[in-house]
């Protein structure tokens, strides 16, 4: 039972990484698009590509919290006690970003748009970094079990956390660039498609370099997860690398389809690999998933809710997607 809930947790984390990740990444490209003049065109594409349910993507994160605090409450207490600072930064960043999002579309004056745009873009970088460093803290075993606090600083300022943060920022940038290429093409804007294609390739290269450095960092700093990644989780790691290379090849050759999907696959499988690598631990080497779990009735409730969510939320999601695609037919967009 606890295994099933752990899988649900992992799926939710992957979903958050993929859905919210692409949005965060779009914010990254917004940030580096340059001044108002030069950046206008890429920003138009970014604005246009921003997913329709956007801030609602945070529901995935909230769901991750809800599963953690119901099913693994002691571990949740340890995490929040130890990682107070990066979690607080992420929370505030999400407010800034959400506000930037909510208001930017609704105001007309250029100066205002610029202020909201800046809030939005900057926090798009800070939040993934904070969340990535949290993942690094957990992976490197710096969060103690039993609802106790670990070190308030070194738990998230350490090699693995920095790796996690930087990798998260690079990965979402890569993901978003792959999406943006596709969006620019849908807008038949060849110049912008090339613009984002160059950036996607650069981001992919950055991810590759960081990952290569990461191998050494993990071996020195997070042995358990390193062993997992090179052992049990190796197939997923290989899958991720393969997807990443495949996506890159498709991007470089300007292929019509597939690049976006492969990019998603690359990010999803590396996040999943992290989960598999630390199995059976929730907090590596101090707390096993099975030992951390809540009473069965609570776990069953979590699974029931997942079932209900599939029944209730999915149809709406599909309808929305269909409408979104239909709404973009050229003759409608005048």
């Amino acid at each position: 039972m606890s295994t099933a809930v752990a899988i649900v947790l992992m799926v939710a984390i992957v979903a958050y990484a993929v859905f919210a990740g692409a949005d965060f990444g779009a914010g990254f490209w917004d940030l580096v698009a340059g001044g108002a003049g030069r950046g206008a065109r890429p920003r138009a594409v970014i604005e246009h590509s921003i997913g329709p349910v956007w801030e609602a993507n945070h529901v995935w994160l909230i769901f991750v919290f809800a599963v953690l605090w119901t099913s693994f409450s002691q571990a949740y207490a340890s995490i929040t006690l130890t990682l107070f600072v990066p979690l607080a930064i992420a929370a505030l960043g999400i407010v800034l970003r959400g506000a930037g999002f909510a208001f930017r579309k609704s105001v007309q004056r250029v100066e205002y748009r610029r202020v909201f745009g800046a809030a939005f873009a900057l926090s798009s970088v800070i939040v993934p970094y904070a969340l990535g460093s949290i993942a690094g803290a957990i992976a490197s075993g710096r969060v103690p079990a039993g609802g106790r606090a670990g070190d308030p600083v070194s738990s998230w300022v350490n090699p693995t956390s920095i790796l996690g943060g930087v990798l998260a920022v690079a990965a979402v940038a890569y993901l978003a660039a792959a999406y943006l290429v596709w969006d620019a093409r849908r807008l038949s804007d060849a110049a912008m498609a090339a613009y984002f294609r160059r950036r996607a390739v650069a981001a992919a290269a950055a991810v590759a370099v960081i990952a290569a450095v990461g191998v050494f960092v993990l071996r020195a700093d997070a042995e358990y997860v390193f062993d997992g990644l090179t052992g049990r989780a190796l197939p997923l790691v290989i899958l991720s690398v393969a997807c990443g290379i495949g996506a890159l090849v498709l991007l470089v050759r300007d292929a019509a389809r597939g690049g976006r999907l492969l990019a998603v696959g690359a990010v999803a499988s590396i996040v999943a690999a992290w989960g598999v690598a630390q199995w059976p631990y929730l907090l590596p080497e101090s707390l096993k998933v099975s030992a951390a779990a809540a009473p069965d009735a609570t776990l069953i409730t979590v699974l029931v809710v997942v079932g209900l969510a599939a029944l209730v939320v999915l149809p709406g999601f599909v309808l929305l997607y269909v409408l979104d695609q239909r709404g973009l037919l050229p003759e409608e967009s005048s």
């Binding site: 119901t70 949740y76 929040t80 929370a91």
Partner: peptide, 28 residues
């Protein structure tokens, strides 16, 4: 939902298994 953990970790640690349940439904 961040604050539950950040401000009241001991509350969530002890009671999350019950108190947290309604929030699962809220999510849907």
């Amino acid at each position: 939902s961040f604050e539950f953990g950040l401000l009241w970790p001991r509350f969530m640690g002890q009671w999350g298994e019950a108190f947290g349940i309604p929030f699962l439904f809220e999510g849907i």
